[in-house]
């Protein structure tokens, strides 16, 4: 749960979601598309940088991205299982 909140805070900063607070982000909602946060393709690149910079995670296979970035919760699960720092 702590990691989820940490990710929300880092995402708000990295993606300049100035109008949002961590509480506004539903960790189970989709990150992309109209139903969730509505992030775009540049945002996903920024999330990849975020994971590498903060958790030492390099996403080598682009096909993994769809599963990893499905929601904040799936991101947190992936970070918890693969982080090197």
């Amino acid at each position: 749960m702590e990691l989820i909140e940490e990710l929300k805070t880092k995402m708000i900063e990295a993606l300049n979601l100035e109008e949002m607070t961590p509480a506004d982000i539903d960790e189970n909602a989709p990150l992309f598309g109209d139903e969730g946060l509505g992030l775009d393709s540049i945002d996903v690149l920024e999330l990849i940088v975020l994971l590498e910079r903060n958790y030492g995670i390099k996403i080598a296979d682009p096909k993994q991205g769809k599963e990893i970035f499905a929601s904040v919760r799936t991101m947190a699960d992936y970070v918890a299982a693969n982080r090197t720092k």
């Binding site: 300049n16 540049i42 945002d43 690149l45 920024e46 940088v49 910079r53």
Partner: peptide, 9 residues
Amino acid sequence: FYPSPSVFV
């Protein structure tokens, strides 16, 4: 060294 995609655009 972390080039920022969102700045680059």
